[in-house]
Each structure stands twice: as C-alpha cells, then as structure tokens.
C-alpha cells in the first residue's frame, strides 16, 4: 500500500531522514516509535504532502505521491496530481486543527462536498453516521470551541474518516489531551482499527496502545528504521540497544 524507496528529507543542513526504505501492506496498522526528532512525524507529513522529499520516491496504492510520470520520466508532482493522490489519505493532528469558523457539521461535510462532490444530503448522512460512531451526535451543530479536547479530537477523527480514506495517518493524536480524555480517544481508534480495513500509520507515545493496536512497530532513530517487528516481540524482547534504552526511558516516565 505504501512504499518508501530511498527517501531523504533535509531541513537545511539537518538530515531528518536518509535513504529510508519500508513498505506497509494494505490494512496493516503500523506504529512508529522513537525519540523526538527521529523523523517519525516527518514521515506522516511526507505522506500527507505537507513536506516534499529531497530524494527518493514514495508510492501509495501504486501511485507516485511526490512525483508523477510524464513522458516516461519522473518529475515532481504538480498540485493537481498530489491532490488526487491525497484524496485517499486522511490525517489526524496532535492539535486537532478543527476549523473554528465552522460547526462540527461544517467541519465534517466541507471536504466531502467540496472535494468528493457529494450532495449536501449525502454528506450530512455520512456526518451523522460518523458522529454516532464517535459518540458525539448531539454536538453536530456546536462550534468546536465549545467542545473538550477529547471531543474535538473525536470530531477530527470523524472528519478524516468522512473522506473514506484508504490510509489514515495519526500524528500523536493524544499528546495534547488531558490524561483523563486519552482513554476515550484510544478506544475509538481501536474500534476503528477492528471494524475497518483502513491502512493506519500512527505516531504515538502510548506504548500500551501501540502494543495492542498495531500489527507492526517500527523503531526510528537518526532518520533510520533501526528495528521493525511485531509489537509482542519488539516490546518484550527488543534487539537493538537503542530500542531497549528508549523503551526503558518511556516506561520509567509513564
């Protein structure tokens, strides 16, 4: 579903990812862990084309993301091409990023009507169905500012799902939440993981969640995957010394 091939990403002189290769199978749930600055979030941002690669290619469902084919050659993608590929990818952000000038309903029907061309009725039906799923049906006409952080994040998840994405990117979605609100959001994500076949890439510091949610965990350090294993194995018997160190530090803190 997702293929990174020799991807390099630099910010100025700072190399964040270097010669990175990995693949994610359709329907797979992959969690990216690692110390801050290790490039985990950058991977999600590259997939969402919020950043562009400096070298290498990324394909999603067999289509180039940051490039396109033109006359047999690979050229950097234009706006139209990347929008087309992006349509199949959804993202949930650490800071929710709901549109404060729209109601919950407005947030949910905006992209389905404007991008997918759904009618208002279809989009509304979809919005209501998703709000049922996230348990916030009664908030449909509220403004986001009236919701708690946890509620906002659940709306943001519903908003991403309203696009019926094939790939969902979760960028530290519980990091900005008060501790008592984290469990509700994680339960919702588990539910989505079980009931859909969406490919999910997740950056999180919630190791318990990573363990029971993901099929695979990738440990990042210095812009490289240093360990890639099923969670049962990686959490109980990490092989790489940096992984051991990282897990120890995380477990002591949390």
């Amino acid at each position: 579903m997702i293929v990174f091939d020799g991807v390099e990403k630099r910010f100025g002189d700072n190399v964040v990812l270097s010669d990175l290769d990995f693949t994610v199978a359709p329907g797979e749930h992959v969690t990216l862990i690692g110390p801050s600055g290790s490039g985990k979030t950058t991977i999600l941002r590259l997939l969402m084309s919020l950043e562009a690669v400096n070298a290498g290619t990324i394909t999603v469902a067999g289509r180039y993301l940051s490039h396109m084919e033109k006359g047999g050659k690979l050229v950097p993608a234009d706006e139209k091409h990347s929008r087309e590929v992006r349509k199949h990818i959804g993202m949930v952000f650490q800071q929710f990023n709901l549109f404060p000038n729209m109601t919950v309903r407005g947030n949910l029907i905006e992209a389905p009507t404007r991008v997918l061309g759904l009618s208002k009725d279809e989009a509304n039906a979809r919005a209501e169905e998703l709000l049922d799923l996230v348990g916030l049906r009664e908030k449909i006409d509220e403004h986001p500012s009236r919701l708690s952080g946890g509620q906002q994040q659940r709306v943001a998840i519903a908003r991403a799902l309203a696009m019926r994405p094939d790939v969902l990117l979760l960028d530290e979605v519980t990091s900005a939440l008060d501790p008592e609100l984290v469990a509700g959001v994680l339960a919702l994500l588990r539910d989505i993981g079980e009931t859909t076949d969406i490919t999910i890439l997740c950056v999180t510091h919630e190791m318990g969640f990573a363990r029971d949610f993901s099929h695979r965990v990738m440990m990042f350090d210095g812009g490289q995957v240093i360990e890639d294993a099923p969670p049962q194995r990686l959490f109980s018997a990490p092989e790489h010394p940096r992984t051991k160190e990282f897990l120890k530090a995380v477990l002591e803190r949390g």
């Binding site: 969402m48 919020l50 929008r83 992006r86 952000f93 990023n97 709901l98 549109f99 404007r114 991008v115």
Partner: peptide
C-alpha cells in the same frame, strides 16, 4: 495557525 492550512491540505481542499 499553520495547523489550519495543514488540516485543509490534508482534506485536499482546493486552494
């Protein structure tokens, strides 16, 4: 906030 632009991009909204 920059997050607003990014959320709009993530939803593929036209410019």
């Amino acid at each position: 906030p920059r997050g607003q632009w990014e959320a709009a991009t993530a939803l593929s909204l036209p410019r």
